[in-house]
Amino acid sequence: MAIYPPERIWWKPLGREERLWVTVAALWCFFMFFMLIGWYFLGAQNLPTRAQRITTAQYKSLADQFVEANKVGEENGVPIVHPQPGTDIYLVAKQWQWTPILELENNKTYTLHVSSLDVQHGLSIQPINLNLQIFPGYDYMITITPNKAGNYSLWCNEFCSIGHHLMTGKIVVK
């Protein structure tokens, strides 16, 4: 009776089924524990963990330089850039646009920098459904190697004020 005090001596040994269940459950938990450590080494895609502090002004000027050096066109006023493989590339989050449009080469590795110029945003890369939280003041550095050509849509999945649903962008892998 869970709502009444138990009998005086309630620290009794476990029954047979209970022992079995607890053992199986504990083993499963340990298995999961080692599995997740293992997956950290085996998995091809891990959480990015590199970031550094940066002011929004600094980040903006880095990104502006990057766009100026690599711009190859424009779509609806948003610059399109085609950076050299192996270099640092910059994506800017701001209310309410991901900019610039990045043109990348397939099977080449880049260091993608992402940071916000105003509030927090959510970088959502579709259709592969990769999602990262983006802060202002933090330069998030993500090593990426696109392995499939095509158009990738970007949208924002962290509420970033009233125009949140207008915030989109694009990565093109060629």
Partner: peptide, 12 residues
């Protein structure tokens, strides 16, 4: 709660 899967689900 698993890191790699969080990457596929965060904020969705």
């Amino acid at each position: 709660g698993a890191g790699q899967l969080s990457l596929l689900a965060h904020n969705t």
